[in-house]
């Protein structure tokens, strides 16, 4: 078990979580909580894979995945922004809807043969840097590199640009934003759509790059929900989202790799000699999500910061309150 390989693979599989987390981060910053990530990712993974099977072009598949998941997210937008229904329940229902739809439309897809995937490549020069070059810049999927770019761009957009300021205003104090002439409804629709698109990207990254194929619900295996947890851990900050996503990716990989060697830290490896203990390893990402949530909410209490103030609340023009 080579730690560099574990982290390298962790960054790759963490990219999926990163896209979903970043998307939800934008959505939540605008004050909309969308719990439908899992469903939208499944829609993305399914449509990316099926379009690629049909056309042979993974890029086309990726675009369709983003649009399909974006469309699903607009259902959530319509229900919560226009109809002002409960965001929690609507998000759950969108998750069910996405899961069900992707199972029906993806029927038989798992039998499709090999398809052309998104390319992998090594970046010259920086890949020569010891360790870091091996981990981050050697033989990674193009989606991983897109992930590297999206994080600083997202941070800059949210914290340093005018539209980013509008985004924050809409999530923190929509009434004031409205008074300044920002269209709260349009902003919230837009960022809900952005969240959907990013989930489509995450789903497409699974089925076209990280673990190619369509395995019905097991394609995502709860990663959409882990991403919802990671947004809380990230304190709505893209860099922390990246840290969380890659850590989780590495953890998922470690669980697979730790069962390989006969010796572990000088002891005989219990996971090698009794593979059934692997079930306890399988619990780790989920248990870890809970631990991360505990840490995240403790820190939020200490630093007196946290969720966007208007998160989860519908905005009704002319009504008192946020």
């Amino acid at each position: 078990m080579d730690l560099v390989i574990v982290i390298q693979a962790g960054v790759a599989s963490g990219t999926v979580l990163l896209f979903a987390t970043l998307g939800e981060l934008f959505t939540e910053r605008s004050g909309v909580l969308n719990l439908g990530l899992e469903g939208m990712m499944l829609i993305g993974a399914m449509s990316a894979f099926s379009v690629t099977v049909a056309t042979g072009n993974p890029w086309l598949g990726l675009v369709v995945a983003m649009l399909a998941a974006g469309l699903i997210s607009l259902i959530h937008g319509f229900i919560t922004i226009t109809l002002q229904s409960d965001q929690v329940v609507s998000g759950l229902s969108v998750s069910f809807l996405g899961t069900g739809l992707s199972l029906v439309l993806g029927e038989g897809l798992s039998k499709a043969g090999t398809i052309s995937l998104l390319p992998k490549f090594t970046i010259p020069l920086i890949s020569q840097v010891p360790i870091l070059g091996d981990i981050f810049f050697t033989n990674q999927s193009v989606m991983v590199y897109i992930g590297y770019l999206l994080v600083p761009l997202s941070w800059y957009y949210i914290n340093r640009t005018r539209p980013g300021m509008h985004l924050r205003a809409v999530g923190e104090f929509p009434a004031a934003a409205d008074a300044l002439g920002i269209n709260v409804y349009a902003q919230r629709y837009f960022y809900t759509f952005v969240g959907g698109i990013m989930c489509g990207l995450a789903g497409g990254t699974i089925s076209l790059a990280i673990s190619p194929g369509w395995f019905s619900e097991l394609t995502t295996a709860g990663q959409g929900w882990i991403a919802v947890g990671l947004v809380i851990f990230s304190q709505w900050d893209p860099y922390r989202a990246m840290l969380g996503a890659y850590t989780f990716g590495a953890l998922r990989r470690l669980i697979l790799d730790i069962q390989g060697p006969t010796m572990l830290l000088g002891f005989s490896n219990p996971f090698y000699y009794n593979p059934y203990y692997g079930f306890f390893l399988q619990m780790l990402p989920y248990a870890f999500t809970i631990i991360v949530l505990v840490l995240g909410s403790r820190e939020a209490m200490r630093k007196r910061m946290g969720a966007p103030a208007a998160l989860g609340l519908p905005y009704i023009r002319g009504q008192r309150g946020l």
Partner: peptide, 19 residues
């Protein structure tokens, strides 16, 4: 067949209900 239909029916019913 396809086997996902009951799940999809549940999802669509819930979405319409909330709406």
């Amino acid at each position: 067949q396809p086997s996902g239909i009951p799940k999809m029916i549940q999802g669509i019913i819930l979405v319409s209900l909330i709406a």
